[in-house]
Design a protein around this nucleic acid. Structure first.
Length: 581
RNA sequence: GGUCGCUUAGCUCAGCUGGAUAGAGUGUCGCCCUCCGAAGGCGAAGGUCAUAGGUUCGAAUCCUAUAGCGACCGCCA
């Protein structure tokens, strides 16, 4: 049940009726007609801009349309009053029974309340994390992992068929560097003194990998040239790093549907096929790029390369797919990978990148646009930097990696639930402050705590009711007489619950899971407000020990809130707490 | 130099395909509680939505320019 959609359907139905009566022209588009909560609750429960939106195309005064519409709407039993306000807003006040219906709907639908069909079963591929397999995940990856995972869940809840995918960059020079670094650790495991030159990975996390390599191959590679061991060590090391990364993801509660190997694109004709597809569209040519404008690199010289004419699909300059020595640039396999995604039949693609890949967005979109003839949209979401703090002081230390803070450093300290929720308390494209102490603080300005506390409070009420011998199963609560739910704080809370399906669709449409976190915070705030009223007005308390029927009615509302919190947290990948300690 | 993103209350940030007097938390100030569901409650003050133009009946929201901050910018991925 989505009350906003229901009322909007009513509005458009009555607009049609007005058209039939001749008060509006036939065939008007109602696409821009919105039914939403008014900014000021004093204005009513819902507002519609229908009259203002239609005034121009209908060539009528907004207020005339609004008044005619108001009269028709007021005839509906769900609507108590319909008032024209301001320039032509129509404010609707709903019958209390509407909110009771919402509560009953939540209890009946359970975790499915708010589930939407807006996705129409469209297949969406969400690619996220995709960190190079050269070491443990760090905080930046953590944000991308949380964001991508929540986004995928959100889209699935909104009726899409979602594939969560990780692209393993195991085909480029960085895995050779990894192999050489592991080789040094391997020599070290054999008792040799080693130094880590610039361009190798000195992190401690490779010590175990070098040791494991020794256990596998003994001294077979000691003092041997690269030609003997490079390929084997590369495979060994990459697998070890991916195992590490999978563990990191598991610690955060992220589970991918598919890991896609860049290496699998080489030597299989996949890259050639993708570039052939572009060539057939006349988008590949041999040419020389202009030097970057402004400050010129010192060693700049013109070079002829194989280029992709990405400018025809919105990019600023054409991009090389082959280096001057004839080998592929990193862009070429990425094109092939996205070609593969298009060929797998996805209706839409989403890539979640770190902010340092910002310069990469246009060319990737250009490639997908070209490869799919503009049929498959690619949305690229960038996650901005995470700034770490401890006690308000900038924090930069890692025992594991030496140079960066890892996902494990964060998750081990504050747990996966807090990590995930906090990472979603900002828009993805805004920098995020993460303070190890504040996120664990038990106070109102900590959103994680505040939302979890609301859920735990409701669970506590349910436990106490049960202990008092009151039946609290959803069927019983759903059958309770809710006509007594008339207090303003109760209505506010129920109305906030009713917003959930609408909010979910907005979040899904904009690919912005953070909206759920903010909504849950507001919902929790409304619950706490009602709870606090119970201090002064005992009749507002959820549990009325001497009156089971009234208790059930009040607990029905609380239970509905807990269902929505639980569902919302579930989408964010956060486990709702049964009690706080 | 170019591209992209950001700029909203003292601070940290929301702000719905453009809509009414721009919201929340925190901080500040006042009141309440201190035996009960107070890891608080009620209320107040606090804004040139970076700046300047433009589009519109209507702009924090869309467009243009400028400033500041950040990321990125041909053989690293």
């Amino acid at each position: 049940m989505n009350i906003y959609a229901d009322i909007r359907a009513l509005v458009t139905q009555e607009l049609d009726a007005l058209a039939t009566e001749g008060l509006l022209p036939e065939g008007l588009s109602f696409d821009n007609v919105a039914v939403e909560p008014p900014r000021d609750p004093l204005h009513g429960d819902m507002a519609t801009n229908a009259a203002m939106v239609l005034a121009k195309p209908a060539k009528k005064k907004p207020r005339d349309i609004a008044e005619a519409l108001a009269e028709r709407l007021a005839a509906d039993p769900r609507i108590v009053t319909a008032d024209v306000a301001g320039p032509g807003f129509l404010n609707l006040r709903l019958a209390p029974s509407v909110w009771a219906d919402v509560v009953r709907a939540v209890l009946a639908e359970g975790d499915d309340f708010g589930r939407s069909q807006m996705g129409q079963g469209k297949r969406i591929n969400v690619e996220y994390v995709s960190a190079n397999p050269t070491g443990p995940l760090h905080v930046g990856h953590t944000r991308g992992a949380v964001f991508g995972d929540a986004l995928a869940s959100l889209l699935a809840f909104a009726g899409h068929e979602v594939t969560r995918e990780y692209y393993i960059n195991d085909g480029g020079g960085q895995v050779d560097t990894l192999a050489r670094s592991v080789y040094l650790r391997y020599l070290e495991a054999h008792g040799q003194e080693v130094a880590f030159p610039d361009g190798t990975y000195p992190g401690d996390y490779l010590i175990a990998t070098g040791q494991a390599l020794k256990e596998k191959v003994g001294d077979a590679y000691v003092d041997q040239p690269e030609s003997v061991w490079l390929q084997e060590v590369r495979n060994f090391a990459t697998e070890a790093m991916m195992a590490l990364i999978r563990e990191d993801l598991a610690a955060l509660g992220v589970k991918m549907d598919k890991f896609y190997s860049e290496k699998s694109l080489y030597g299989t004709g996949r890259i050639e096929a993708a570039l052939k597809a572009l060539e057939d569209k006349g988008l590949i040519y041999e040419g020389v790029l202009e030097p970057p404008k402004g400050k010129k690199p010192e060693d700049w010289e013109p070079r002829e390369q194989t280029l992709f004419k990405s400018t025809e699909h919105g990019d600023d300059v054409d991009r090389p797919v082959k280096k001057s020595d004839g080998s592929w640039t990193y862009f070429a396999p990425d094109i092939a990978y996205h070609f593969d995604k298009v060929e797998r039949g996805f209706d839409a693609l989403i890539d979640v990148f770190g902010a340092d890949h910002g310069g990469y967005v246009k060319r990737m979109k250009a490639a997908v646009s070209a490869l799919s003839d503009g049929k498959v949209p690619l949305d690229i979401k960038l996650t901005q930097l995470v700034k770490l703090y401890k006690n308000g002081e900038p924090f930069k230390m890692s025992k594991r990696a030496g140079t960066f803070v890892t996902l494990r450093d964060v998750v081990d300290q504050v747990g996966p639930d807090v990590t995930r929720f906090v990472m979603l308390t900002r828009k993805n494209d805004a920098p995020l402050d993460f303070d190890f102490d504040k996120v664990l603080e038990q106070s109102k300005d900590n959103p994680v705590f505040y939302v979890q506390y609301a859920h735990a409070r409701i669970k506590s009420v349910l436990r106490k009711a049960q202990a008092a011998g009151i039946a609290i199963d959803d069927a019983t609560l759903g059958a309770a007489d809710l006509s007594g739910m008339t207090n303003a704080a109760e209505i506010t809370l129920a109305a906030k619950v009713a917003e959930w399906p609408r909010l979910l669709e907005i979040a899904a449409r904009t690919n912005e899971p953070h909206r759920i976190a903010f909504y849950l915070y507001e919902l929790a705030g409304d619950l706490h407000a009602l709870w606090n009223r119970g201090n002064d007005e005992p009749e507002l308390r959820f549990l009325q020990e001497d009156n089971p029927a009234t208790s059930q009615a009040k607990i029905a509302l609380a239970r509905a809130v807990s269902v929505v919190i639980s569902t919302g947290l579930g989408i964010l990948g956060v486990t709702p707490m049964e009690e706080m300690r």
